[in-house]
Amino acid sequence: MHQRKIQNTSVAVTELGFGASVIGNLYRVTPVEDAMAAVDAAWEAGIRYFDTAPHYGLGLSERRLGAALRDRPRDEYVVSSKVGRLLVPNEEPRGVDPEGFVVRDDLRRQWDFSRDGVLRSIEDTLERTGLDRLDVVYLHDPDDHWRQAAEEAMPALAELRDQNVIGAIGAGMNQSAMLARFLRETAADVVMLAGRYTLLDQSAIDDVLPAASELGKSVVAVGVFNSGLLSGDWPVEGMKYDYQDAPPDLLARARAISEVCGTHGTTLPAAAIAFPHTHPSIINVTLGMRTPEQVVRNVELHDQHIPDGLWDDLRTQGLIRSLVPAEPGRGEESRCL
């Protein structure tokens, strides 16, 4: 599978990545056998970028991913994890984690973007995964913690990067505006953009993507199915958009996009995976993969040929926004027509 470098670093990731949140029992139990087999299938398919976080299953995702990769050649794959949520003993457990993961809540998350919190979080992740290093480290959802994240956490990560302890650093969020600030105002190399450059939401055109283009930095796209609405060939009522039931207008728009995809001999989910790659700053699309079957399907979708005429038709029909280069001398900033 083709690899692309995070700009200005030595870290290269495959264009399709394995998102390990679901093997941390996101929403439902994933048997350990399925989790291990999913990682094996991803490896066999050529995927060499794996993303996890302490938040995912209160450490379960990190433990499972580390175990699945333990016997693989370390120099042949890239692992990213995240900092900002320390896992600490839960003094008042109620049985099950309240944040969407089907695991015991003997631990709880504690926000901490301090320098000490970053160092402790990385040390804990290395212990859980059994890895000797992390290739990429993101600040995880620092929406309400800009000052500490920008002034303490990011400098701590930059120091580790400059010491060659970490290969690349950045931030991951479900919004684009603050990610653009991280690119413009901090030492971030890369951002993980969740759901904001998809067939249904191109808001990153206004901030993250111009910043990445101007500064020569990189973007990893996740959440490209917008919580499920773009994951099937034909969207139906009850499908989710950004974790809620999709409103009628977005359902209708997704169906219209699906119809255009059909006229070009492709499908809605294949187009959803391909679309972020139409912007040169986006180097990877990472998808959650719970079972070997999901891995096989996602790889097949990723490998489908998508004719350029599809994007032209979608723009002409007003179903996706148009990218227009900014004035000469002002970088590759884009705006909506």
Rank of each mutant, 00 (worst) to 15 (best):
L200V: 00
L200S: 04
L200N: 05
L200H: 02
L200Q: 07
D201G: 04
Q202H: 06
Q202N: 09
S203P: 00
A204N: 12
I205C: 07
I205N: 12
P210A: 13
A211Y: 12
A211T: 13
A212M: 10
A212G: 09
S213W: 10
S213L: 11
S213Y: 01
E214C: 12
E214F: 09
E214V: 14
L215I: 04
L215D: 05
L215T: 02
K217H: 05
K217E: 10
S218G: 01
S218N: 02
S218F: 02
V220W: 03
V220P: 13
A221S: 15
V222P: 04
V222L: 11
V222E: 02
G223L: 11
G223E: 10
V224N: 08
V224S: 13
F225A: 08
N226P: 03
G228S: 06
L230K: 00
L230V: 00
S231I: 01
G232Y: 07
G232P: 00
G232M: 10
D233R: 15
D233W: 06
D233T: 14
D233C: 07
D233M: 12
W234K: 13
P235C: 07
E237W: 09
E237I: 05
G238W: 03
G238E: 06
G238M: 06
G238T: 08
M239C: 13
M239Q: 14
M239R: 15
M239K: 12
K240Y: 06
K240G: 03
Y241R: 05
Y241L: 10
Y241H: 10
D242T: 06
D242L: 08
Y243H: 09
Q244K: 13
A246L: 08
A246R: 14
P247G: 09
P247F: 06
P247T: 04
P247N: 13
P247I: 07
P248A: 05
P248L: 08
D249K: 13
L250M: 14
L250N: 08
L250S: 10
L250R: 15
L251S: 09
L251P: 03
R253L: 00
A254N: 12
A254E: 02
A256K: 15
I257Q: 05
I257L: 00
I257F: 00
S258H: 08
S258M: 02
S258W: 05
E259I: 11
V260Y: 00
V260F: 03
G262C: 03
G265N: 07
G265S: 12
G265F: 07
